[in-house]
Nucleic acid binder design. Structure first.
Lengths: 218, 218
DNA sequence: CTCGGTATGTGAACAGTGTTCACTGAGAAT
DNA sequence: ATTCTCAGTGAACACTGTTCACATACCGAG
């Protein structure tokens, strides 16, 4: 039984040693995670391999299994990093403009910018393995849904304020999310067709469509 | 030198034999392709493997390389099958409604239905490896762009007829394509969030948005 | 009919992947 | 000082795509 005995010399030593081992463990875990993030961003999803991560930090492949259950588990934790970036960029945009129109524009541009600047993250998060974000940990899974519900709140407020026409805010935000996702997905997977400027114009067109529609009747 | 000599018995035999070998070759090629398509639709992109295709038809893995350059080459030809399906379904929808609104609705529903009914094909064609459709063969590459330009033509006609407000038809169709792609992509990769009915509602909402917009001002 | 050539399929090999596991070796606990 | 725990290793397993020397069967010509 381990007692909380820091009054004796042996007790203090034991505790310090335990703490040190704990921080060492966390440091190595972080080292793996950093290396994984770097290699992932560099080589993309397909070429990403456990063995190369291990080699990159000078460990044997099997060692990583002391810190992560699986390749999927490792990827999940990498995706988490991407989600932090995504959430902060979205949150910043959400509180930028005073007008709803401006706010939505800012959030949309932030969304697309994130996808274009971190294509591998976006791929992993929203395209390749979105299932990763659901299983695994419950406390972090909500992180993922929160970004989605954030849009809904903005939309609900806009409908209530009369900035948008009456209707189901959830349905509207879903449809708008589909637009954003479609633009980013096309931009990422068909970079040879759509360069950055064209994606920008596409987004502007989509915003125009969103607000005013393309129909001719008033 | 091979002369076109079907007047002698030996000549006829030679020609028939050559024809037979040729058809045998085509048959085996088709057998591989069918098996590949089956396994691909069954197991999806990630689990798809050359060796399993070979095993499935009772050949050694190396044999496939007599008929396809590469795994990519094989996948490209599988994708081609998907494109035939896609194109015919789109073409049928394009000539269905007399009114533009109806036509666009029909095409949109066909688009989404294709994605939901053939998720692995859609993944391969538009998400996983769209690069496959560009390199490889020039004559078939246009096949892929034609489906895209078809939308543009419909839009151009609609603008000219006053069914849509004035503007660049290409930009409009691109934006609308992004919407469709976004809906299907979300439906495919996040099937646990969006079931078929919800995707349907999402599409209806998107059509509403497309025609009338979500803004409150007239 | 026999010879030479041509194309086809095989089997083994290579380099890579994720994952497991018996084993060291060092440090902590007793 | 001895036991115990745990991190890390290295080898193995079952896969993957791809290549290549080789056997083999068949075709065309002499």
């Amino acid at each position: 039984m381990v007692k909380n005995s820091s009054n004796t010399r042996a007790g203090r030593l034991r505790q310090l040693s335990q703490e040190r081992r704990e921080t060492e463990r966390k440091e190595l875990r972080q080292l793996i995670l950093d290396a994984a993030g770097e290699l992932f961003a560099q080589d993309g999803y397909e070429a990403f391999s456990l063995r190369r991560v291990a080699e990159h930090i000078g460990y044997s492949p099997g060692a990583l299994y002391r810190y992560f259950d699986d390749k999927d588990d490792l990827l999940f934790n990498v995706a988490d990093e991407g989600f932090k970036l995504f959430r902060t960029s979205q949150a910043a945009a959400a509180t930028s403009g005073s007008d709803f129109t401006q706010t939505l524009r800012a959030m949309a541009h932030a969304y697309v910018a994130f996808g274009m600047q971190h294509p591998t993250y976006y791929r992993l998060m929203f395209m390749e393995r979105p299932d990763l974000l659901f299983k695994s940990r419950q406390d972090q899974a909500s992180e993922w849904l929160r970004a989605l519900t954030e849009y809904q709140e903005v939309f609900a407020a806009a409908v209530q304020a009369g900035k948008l026409r009456a209707g189901d805010p959830a349905a509207m935000s879903e449809a708008w999310w589909a637009v954003l996702h479609g633009i980013v997905a096309l931009g990422i997977t068909m970079g040879f067709l759509f360069d950055a400027e064209r994606i920008q114009r596409m987004l502007d067109n989509a915003l125009e469509m969103f607000f005013h529609g393309y129909g001719s009747q008033p």
